[in-house]
Structure formats: C-alpha cells, structure tokens
Design a protein around this nucleic acid. Structure first.
Lengths: 198, 198
DNA sequence: TGAATAACAGATATTGAAATCTGTCAGCGA
DNA sequence: TCGCTGACAGATTTCAATATCTGTTATTCA
C-alpha cells in the first residue's frame, strides 16, 4: 500500500473513513490508520494533534457533505414556498438515504457527531441560516408572513427534528414516513404562508 | 424490613423503583429487589415472569404518570387553541421537570422505555389521540381549520419531538429553551387556526 | 532542515477464570 | 392447597493480569 504520494490531511481522512468502515468505530485505532497508509502512527500525529481531532475532522467532513447540496436550493430562483418544501425534503432524504444505505456507517457517524458537538453546532447554525434566507426571501416576495424570521427558522428546524436527527433514525423504516413528512411540511407551510382565501 | 404486608405486584414495582434509584439501572438485580422486599427472588418471579417484564412494568407506570395529567387538559372547557397551547406546554414541562430534578433516574427511565417499545407505542398513541380530540374540538368550535385531524395530530406530535423526546434531554438546559418553545407553539397554532384578518 | 521513525510511559482494552445473576422447580410450612 | 423457599444449571458479569493503544520525543534519513 506504499503509495508514492505525500501524506496530506485529506488523504488521512479518506483512509480513516475506510478504516472506520472496515473495523467499526470501537476497534478502529490510529495504528490501524497508519498501517493502512503504510506509515508510522507518529506521522499521523504530525497532521492531527490527537485521535479525537482526527475523529472530529471525519465528522465535520461528513456533515459538510450533507449540508453543501442544500445551499444550491437556497440559491435557486423558485418561489419561497417551493424552496422551503424542497429544502426540507432534501434534508430528510440526505440523512435517510445515508442511513438506509449503510446503517452501520451511519451509526458510526452518529457517534462521531455526538463527540464533535462543536462541529455539529456549526452545522446546525449553517442549516438554520439557510432556512432563514428562504424565509426572508418569502417575506420579500409577499408569500410568507413572519414576525421574527430567525426565531421561526429555528422553530422549523426544531419541528423537523424527528425526520433528520439521527437519534430517530430507527423510525425511518416506518412505511408511513412519507405521509408523516407530507403532513408536517403542510402544517409548517400553513404556519408561515400569508392567509389564503378565508 | 419484613413488612407484614402481602406481596403484590404494586408493592414490587414501588420497591423496584427504589432499588433502581439506589443501585442504578446497570447494577439493580432481581436479587436486590427481593432483598429489599425481604423475600426470596423466586417470589418475585411468581408475580413477574422475567426481569424484562418487571422492567417493562416499571416503564409503563412511569409513562402513565406522565400522560395521565394531560388527559385533564383535554377534558377541560377552554377554547381549543388555549387547550392546545396548555397541553403542549404541560407535556414539555412534565418531561423536562423529571429530567432536571433527577437526571440519573431520567436516564434510567429512558433506557427502560427503549426496551419497552410496546408500552412506548401505546403511550404515543394515547398522546396522539388526546391531541386529535383537541383538534376536533377546535374544528367543531370553528377556531381550527384542519383537513385531516388524525394526520395533523401526528404532525404536531412529531413537530414537538425535540421538546419532549428524552433523546434530546441534554439540550433542555439551554437558556433559550422557553423562547424556542414559544416560537414552535406559535408556528404550530398558526398552522391549524382559521385565517385571521388578512 | 524538516518529515518520518522507533522506542517509550501512561492510559485503555482484552481476556479468561471466578463470582454473581437469572429463571426453574421440588419440596416445606401455614 | 397455595404461596414461599432454597438449591440448582446455564448465562452473564466482574476482576485482575496481560496486551494493545495513545501521545511524546530523541534520533534517523533524504
């Protein structure tokens, strides 16, 4: 495995994900990562000051892979209600797809995320800000009527918890899930849209 | 401790909660419970067929203590929006109070509940039905406008997850919690109420 | 010079033998 | 008769000795 490539943080992170996938979270050690890279484990410590920081970096990468595509929806030019609908569904789908495709790896990332609560808070803030942009957009367009967009963005994020927070992933096999998501999104949309015909 | 009282399931459950509180979930054994009751552990097995069923009964008791007081709010004669507001806040307060008063015991009950998923499903169904009654009430009174009360009741329950589901209890110390709850309830109320003046 | 290493101390994980627990049942005593 | 007991087998947990890992540093090599 002695690649004639320089040792970069990025390469270490990739191999670390591999090692986590093969050995599982509990058994994956820094020594394993070093072995997979064909270097001594001391070399890994040259790029990451501790095992915890290595794990945190892996978690951060994963969270960024989830939130990046959502940014595109915010940028789009659709009406705000459509954006809100699509953004929420994209968030749910991103998480649920990862869970259904590889539950073990998902559990691994869940535990990593629990440890890396700083990165998770950043992730949450980032997502809430995206939501707020959509809401402000809708207010400007006259389709939404919202007193406090920041508070409402947080409220929507909180309300959506069950369908994107990994703690509830064991319910994502429920055949009624799509119906529940539809009902929630309808309820939330009605909560922010301007009054329809009485 | 040799009480001259007959051994009833109720008495066993009470003492079991005591033992759980003193020894912790991991260390509490059926032998401990029997010792506290001053009987042989065989006697406990006369009333509960297994340790798991004993634990499940403890979980069920706890869940019932949470949901019972909420029933009174449903029965009340206030306007539906007030009921809905009070019911949600009562649910959140019930869980959060238990968590803040004794986090260790709360964690114990959380684990018990995870095991007793049958009881938990009953609990959820019971709560959702209470919600549905409030919603139907509001529709009849003309304050709510809801296409499908059953689906909406579930959606509200799902939306409230973050503030009553024990998996999120570690966030209940957040000083912003009351504000977040206010924002969520306002959003949900707007989602079910008939249109106000445009 | 600067990246990588190998050897090390203290912390953590593994392992297998011994202790304890769960669930059962034949028999005791009211 | 009926509830309780105490002894038991198999499963689970504990504990301490052993092995492995984490993080550091003096040294090597290009």
């Amino acid at each position: 495995m002695n690649e004639n490539v320089v040792l970069t943080p990025e390469r270490i992170l990739e191999v670390t994900e591999d090692v986590l996938r093969r050995y599982g979270l509990a058994k994956a050690t820094v020594v394993d990562v070093a072995r997979a890279l064909d270097v001594s484990h001391g070399s890994v410590y040259r790029h990451f000051p501790s095992k915890a920081s290595l794990r945190e970096a892996v978690a951060k990468r994963w969270l960024e892979r989830v939130s990046a595509p959502l940014g595109n929806i915010v940028e789009g030019s659709e009406p705000a209600p459509v954006k809100l609908d699509r953004w929420l569904r994209a968030l749910f789908t991103a998480k649920q797809k990862r869970y259904l495709e590889d539950p073990e790896m998902f559990a691994t990332y869940l535990t990593l995320a629990r440890e890396a609560c700083k990165s998770v808070n950043g992730h949450k803030t980032c997502l809430t800000e995206q939501l707020e942009l959509i809401l402000a957009d809708g207010v400007k367009q006259g389709t939404f009527e919202i007193a406090d967009t920041k508070a409402t963005a947080k409220a929507i994020f909180d309300a959506a918890t069950r369908f994107h927070h990994p703690a509830h992933s064991d319910e994502w096999n429920d055949p009624q899930l799509p119906a529940r998501i539809d009902a929630l999104i309808a309820l939330l949309l009605r909560g922010v849209e301007v009054c329809r015909k009485s």
